[in-house]
Design a protein around this nucleic acid. Structure first.
Length: 277
DNA sequence: ATTCTACCCTGCAAGC
DNA sequence: TGCTTGCAGGGTAGAA
């Protein structure tokens, strides 16, 4: 489910409800996610105050300041996860794996049917954790620019779509937004990354930033089940130009959009607007 | 160093 | 009405 805009939407949705609040009780119903939830999570968190909420790549980071521990709680939504603010009496649904209940009753509830997400404790030095240490720049920051991308791609033979989805190259761009931004830049998804000229990377960077920013404005993309922190779906799916539109005409030229699989991921492109060079 | 393959898990739709 | 197959927003580990 969630790429950067969906995680950002979740962060914006939950932050006003949990910031500066004290964690009263932590309930773990299913600890087996992508990695096991630490068995002492409730001891680490209970009594702590949430002092800061950040997003890095597709990770949500909650700084928890307490007597037994002070550090960062890291949450990833995987493919199918969501994080919502609910009232304590709200019915527990299947796959509601974790509840973080605050002193005023407000409850942060983590649901993830496929359990590809994770809930981990990082301690204070979050940036040295192996899952964060090697991440590339944030796509909406100035560090993500054409010169950087062009230099990083030099000599690489991997398909450009896989290259821009590599979180060590740039974070937050998943399958949907990779398809969309490559289309807007006129780059064939199978083009070897090292063959893409600087000028095209420049267009790509601009397209990626504007696509992500617009998706955040619209509350993310809801294909099936994504909801933000307020439980509401996103609306960006109606703005998708290629993802999920294979077999339909290109919005630019009318050519039928083509579907191929790259690294097992559906890749949709316009053979006429995105020629292989 | 880079690239490829298998794998984690559930739910849903399509095909038989 | 089943049963089987394939696919789905993610990303890692380990092999090649």
């Amino acid at each position: 489910m969630p790429e950067l805009p969906e995680v950002e939407t979740t962060k914006n949705g939950i932050a006003p409800h949990i910031q500066h609040k004290t964690i009263h009780r932590v309930t773990v119903r299913q600890p087996q996610l992508r990695w096991p939830i630490p068995s002492n999570l409730s001891i680490l968190l209970e009594g702590s105050v949430v002092t800061d909420i950040q997003r890095r790549a597709k990770y949500l980071l909650l700084h928890c300041d307490g007597e037994s521990a002070t550090g960062w709680l890291m949450i990833h939504l995987g493919m199918s996860g969501n994080l919502r603010v609910v009232q304590p009496e709200a019915d527990i649904q299947k796959h509601d794996h974790v509840d973080i209940a605050f002193a005023d009753g407000t409850t942060l509830r983590y649901q993830d049917p496929r359990r590809f997400g994770c809930v981990l404790w990082l301690g204070e030095d979050k940036d040295s954790h192996k899952l964060l240490a090697k991440l590339g720049p944030e796509p909406l920051s100035d560090d993500f620019n054409a010169d950087y991308l062009y230099g990083k791609a030099k000599g690489r033979k991997v398909a450009v779509k896989q290259f821009v989805m590599n979180q060590e190259v740039v974070t937050g761009i998943g399958n949907i937004y990779a398809n969309e931004a490559l289309f807007k830049a006129g780059i064939h998804p199978q083009q070897p990354a090292g063959d893409v000229p600087l000028g095209q990377y420049s267009v790509f960077v601009t397209a990626a930033k504007s696509t992500l920013a617009k998706a955040i404005e619209q509350g993310g993309t809801t294909l099936k089940d994504f909801v933000g922190g307020d439980g509401k779906p996103g609306y960006f799916q109606q703005s998708l130009l290629v993802y999920g539109r294979d077999g339909q005409p290109c919005t630019q030229c009318g050519t039928e959009l083509t579907l191929i699989r790259l690294n097992g991921r559906a890749s949709v492109y316009c053979p006429s607007c995105q020629p292989l060079r």
